[in-house]
């Protein structure tokens, strides 16, 4: 694993095909997320034609635990610092869930650094449902167990964890919700301004689960962005984990990568 110093924090970063001039940066979601969600399937496929950069958000995966700075401005600043540290002037950004919000904020603030956007299951920033899910769902162990029951069979199997893993993730959630400013930062985050969003004039793929509740956000973004398209993938919110092959295929098409069987890929 490669640790990269970004200001005062150290982030876990993985790269593939680093000599390629065109770059795609992958940003995971909150909670159970880490760069592992891209590493095994999606990143190798994209790396056939692009330099691929994956990183663990702070307090996730193998990155440093960090007490504060979970607002979108700080997180998008850290993405800019990451690009500077890796000498990447421009990149396409792929985000999942909360990672899409970082990607949107980044594109709003640093449009000259963004080529294309692919937003997988973008939630609505400031949406009470999203925040209350985090507060009442992930924060509370019994509610989290209830949440797990709502997931489909495959997701439940993937998330079924050993005692060591449960303990490890409980420690992470406890840190995020008890000791960091994550909740305060999420709750004080304002919705994006439509006029500012309209200025993000990028070719954009809006990838949504056909059983997900986040379609209204994709429709809103589609109405603001003429160069965007909505594409559906089988599943709910967790499509990169439930349907990685479908997600990979749509990303390959969007980024103009010749579609191949995954077994034919050599990294």
């Amino acid at each position: 694993m490669s640790q990269l110093r970004i200001g005062k924090i150290s982030l876990n970063v993985q790269q593939l095909n680093i000599n390629c001039p065109d770059t795609i940066i992958l940003i995971h979601g909150l909670g159970y997320g880490s760069l592992a969600m891209w590493y095994f399937n999606i990143a190798p496929a994209l790396a056939r034609q692009y330099r691929v950069v994956m990183y663990d958000l702070k307090s996730h995966g193998k990155s440093d635990q960090v007490q504060d700075g979970y607002d979108l401005i700080t997180l998008s600043n850290e993405l800019a610092m990451l690009m500077r540290a890796l000498h990447i002037p421009t990149a396409s950004i792929v985000g999942f869930s909360f990672g899409t919000l970082i990607a949107i904020k980044f594109a709003e603030r640093f449009p000259q650094k963004v080529n294309k956007l692919a937003l997988i299951e973008a939630p609505y920033v400031g949406e009470q449902h999203t925040v209350s899910f985090l507060v009442n769902g992930l924060y509370n162990k019994s509610a989290m167990n209830e949440y797990r029951k709502t997931l489909d069979d495959k997701m439940q199997r993937i998330l079924s964890r050993s005692a060591r893993q449960i303990e490890k993730h409980d420690r992470m959630f406890q840190y995020l919700f008890d000791k960091s400013t994550l909740m305060r930062d999420l709750l004080s985050e304002k919705d994006f301004d439509d006029n500012k969003l309209k200025e993000i004039d990028k070719e954009t793929l809006l990838l949504n689960g056909d059983k997900s509740s986040h379609l209204p956000t994709a429709k809103r973004l589609k109405s603001l962005w003429p160069k965007s398209q909505i594409v559906f993938v089988t599943g709910g919110h967790d499509i990169p984990i439930i349907s990685p092959d479908e997600v990979r295929l749509h990303l390959e098409i969007f980024f103009g990568i010749e579609v191949k069987n995954i077994s034919a890929i050599t990294i």
Binding site: Q14, M37, S162
Partner: peptide, 16 residues
Amino acid sequence: ASDLELDSIEIVEFSE
């Protein structure tokens, strides 16, 4: 998973 109790990010670390 069942014996070594690795999660996905640990498998990434193992792979690297």
